[in-house]
């Protein structure tokens, strides 16, 4: 039975994404829910050969917590950058920071760089695969070590735990 479910749902994440996207695009009626269910089963099966294997999500609840943390950080960073923009004498000290990545898999690294770029004040500039580092541009940086530590504790360690890598 377990094996049958594994065969039926090869990509659980993509299936859920298709299901909810279809429901959001059409309407929340039983008919469209049935159609969304079948599409969520069939589309990952048909496109199975094209997917590069990705690390599985080990802790989905931690992912939800991570998303809320990121939203909170985006609001805080927006206020900080807004204050910097509007202050009459702005003496910001921008800087480039090399951030050593502790992950190897492409998908978690993409999530990390997107998170860094989404919060105003930090911007992922360049991923350097040869020594597995990320070049970050920060708008106003006092302590470079502190920023690297903050990103590791706040974003990268939860991502590592979520994807188990």
């Amino acid at each position: 039975m377990k094996r049958f479910f594994h065969w039926l749902i090869t990509h659980p994440f993509i299936s859920t994404l298709i299901f909810f996207t279809w429901l959001l695009l059409t309407s929340f009626t039983p008919g469209s829910a049935v159609l969304a269910f079948f599409l969520a089963l069939i589309i990952p099966k048909l496109t199975d050969a094209f997917w590069v294997p990705q690390p599985k999500i080990h802790k989905p609840f931690k992912l939800v917590l991570f998303v809320f943390h990121v939203f909170y950080d985006i609001i805080v960073a927006n206020l900080a950058v807004g204050r910097k923009v509007l202050s009459p004498s702005h003496h910001s000290r921008p800087g480039f920071i090399i951030y050593p990545l502790a992950m190897q898999e492409p998908f978690p690294i993409t999530l990390l760089t997107s998170t860094i770029s989404l919060s105003p004040g930090t911007l992922s500039a360049h991923l350097r695969p040869h020594d597995n580092t990320l070049l970050i541009h920060a708008l106003d940086v006092d302590d470079r070590e502190a920023l690297v530590n903050f990103i590791y504790e706040r974003y990268e360690r939860p991502l590592k735990e979520i994807f188990g890598c």
């Binding site: 950058v81 807004g82 923009v85 004040g121």
Partner: peptide, 10 residues
């Protein structure tokens, strides 16, 4: 580049 990040998020 940090300006548009504000308008595209918040």
């Amino acid at each position: 580049m940090h300006g548009p990040a504000m308008s595209s998020t918040m």
